[in-house]
Each structure stands twice: as structure tokens, then as C-alpha cells.
Amino acid sequence: MKTRKLWAALALTVAATGVAPASPAHAADGLDSVRVYYPSDLGNGGHVLTRLDFVSRTEVVYRSFTVRDVCPGDSLPVRGRVEWRYTDGSIGYGAWRNVTSGCSSSGTSFGDIRVSRTKAIASARVTVCVYTASGGNRGCATSTGRDNQFS
């Protein structure tokens, strides 16, 4: 009975003021992925898949970070990396992780990648690129990423 009265009072407050009470932030953890098509959308290129897990304002874990060279082969290697944006707008990023399994359906798993900084992290994302043997990126794509619910 007390619960009904509480909800009724809340409904009257919202109706009278037109303002809903603040709700807690929703967790932004979850899957993040991106696909690059190169040289066109013929099915070749690369793919990155991870699960973002924000631990605090300054720490995020990219779980089961996997980079895949998508078949049919274009004779170009694929690499991916983790990236994050600080609350001041600057960008940070990890080292490139190169596919070692060649053109396959499983890709190369790099396990968990933990990013822990002294500055607050606002969001996290991933990038995948098709590149040349000399190291130049030929085509890249970056995910939309996820926001850190702690910042």
C-alpha cells in the first residue's frame, strides 16, 4: 500500500511540475565493432570486434579484442587498435595489432586490453585498417564507440 501512495505522489509531482525526476545513468558497456571495405564493398577488407567494459572514470577494458582479415583476400594485411577520448577532448590510442592468422573466419584474438590513465576517459572506440607492406594505411574505419558511464 505504501508503494502505491509513493508512486501516486510521484505522478502528481511530475504532472504538477512537468519535470520528471532524474534517473541514474545507464551503463554504456557492451559490444563495439567496425568493418572496413577495401578497395570497395566487394566483401574484402577487415573487421574488429570487442566488448567495452568501463571500470571507472579513468579505466576501460577492451575484452576479447579480435581483428579479422575478411575473405575473399585482397592480398593486403589488416590491423586494428583501441582508441579513447578524454573528457578534455584529446584522443589516446594503443599500438596497432596486426592479424597473424591471414584471411580466416576466426581472426586473431589479442585477449583483453586494459587502458588505465590518470585523466578521465569520456568514451572508447576501435579502428580497423587495411594497409600495405610498407606500413601505409590504404583504407580505415572507426566505430562510433561507447560513452563512459562514470565520467
Rank of each mutant, 00 (worst) to 15 (best):
L6E: 11
E59R: 15
P72M: 02
G135F: 11
D29V: 05
V61Q: 15
C140T: 00
A133G: 04
A11E: 12
G136N: 06
S90Y: 01
R114K: 10
V82F: 03
T13P: 02
G145M: 05
L31W: 12
D88H: 10
A133F: 08
Q149T: 05
S101I: 00
S106G: 10
A28I: 06
Y86Q: 11
W96A: 00
L10D: 13
S123E: 15
G102L: 05
G89A: 05
K2L: 04
R51E: 15
T144V: 05
R68L: 14
P39I: 07
V14Q: 14
A141S: 13
Y37R: 09
A25I: 06
K5L: 14
E83W: 01
G46P: 02
L52Q: 11
T87M: 03
L42N: 09
V19P: 00
A25S: 10
S116P: 01
G45C: 01
V130I: 10
S105L: 11
L31C: 07
T50R: 11
F65G: 13
V55H: 03
N148A: 05
F110S: 08
G80E: 06
L76G: 00
D88S: 13
L31N: 15
D112Q: 08
G136A: 04
I113Q: 09
A9R: 11
S109A: 09
V128I: 05
G136H: 04
S64L: 13
R68C: 04
F65D: 13
T66P: 13
D53R: 14
A122H: 10
S123M: 14
D32R: 07
D32N: 14
T118Y: 03
R57M: 08
V128M: 03
V19Q: 11
A20P: 03
T17I: 05
S116M: 07
